[in-house]
Amino acid sequence: MLIIQQLVNGLMLGGVYVMVAVAFTLIIGMLNFLNFTIPALFMFAAVLMYATMMGHLPFGNDLILSVFGTEYRWVAGIIVALVVIALVSLVIERFTYRYMKAKYGDATEHALPLVSSLGFLIIFEHLVVSTWGSDPLTATSPFGQGTFSIDTIIFSVPQIVSLVLSLVVVVMLSVMLKATKLGRALRAIAERPDTAILMGVEVSRIVPVVYVITGLLCAVSGILFTINYATVDAYVGDTVATVAIAGMVLGGLGNVWGAIIGGLFIGMLEVMSIYIVGADFAKLPIWGLLLVLLVFKPTGLFGHTLIGKGKF
């Protein structure tokens, strides 16, 4: 029974990784670059949610309190986090993607947005550290510790809600990619950007949309993280994102459904390896798997082979 409990916990943890992994995979699939602002956005959303809920914003706390009251400050937190992250994503787009095309087009050209995104990671981490300090910040969950159990296996209600919510968001995203005009344009860019431009896709207007979508995915994930795990700090994004990267690679770069399955699987693998071999060893199975996978089957379980081969 204990092992099933662990599997359930792993699934819930995987729910956090799923959205971050999907955010990574979208940017890699569309734009062929490893976006290190994703951990920053995840962490920033989580901290903003904490700060709004607990009244620790640098300004505007009284306004939020008078409009929403103590009872519904979590609603304000969600709004603040989503709006701020969407705006920030547009700024990031302006300074990373736009400079992707190197003048000389040499082998390290894909490093340019990587470096800019690392710059943003440094900015946000230190923004949070200098505003809220580097100690862990503890929020009180607005929903308490609601649990129910089926035959001795305990389920936490907020965690189940978030798992379902993250799956719903991702399913909506993949329907959007399949069925809408925007989705078609996005897939065209992912397939071959130059041809997409020739076919009349306005790449420079679509790319900001990709950034906002991934930013919002991170934001939702960060918000749910604060509600579920209650403790956030400036470096929470790094930990979550590195594991999410492993999930993404497992599912195959650029594959949304692969990222979902990969994220859930990595969550379970992490919890199971902590349970079986202890917390010190927990890193090894994840990274060992990732290394072996990258070397022997870099396309992952369901990836396609276009990524990293002369895009843009």
């Binding site: 300074f95 947005p113 800019s116 710059g119 990671l121 440094i122 900015i123 200098s130």
Partner: peptide
């Protein structure tokens, strides 16, 4: 370090 991050971004620009 915030300023420093801004440096990095601008340098890439």
């Amino acid at each position: 370090f915030i300023l420093f991050g801004v440096f990095i971004v601008l340098l890439m620009v």
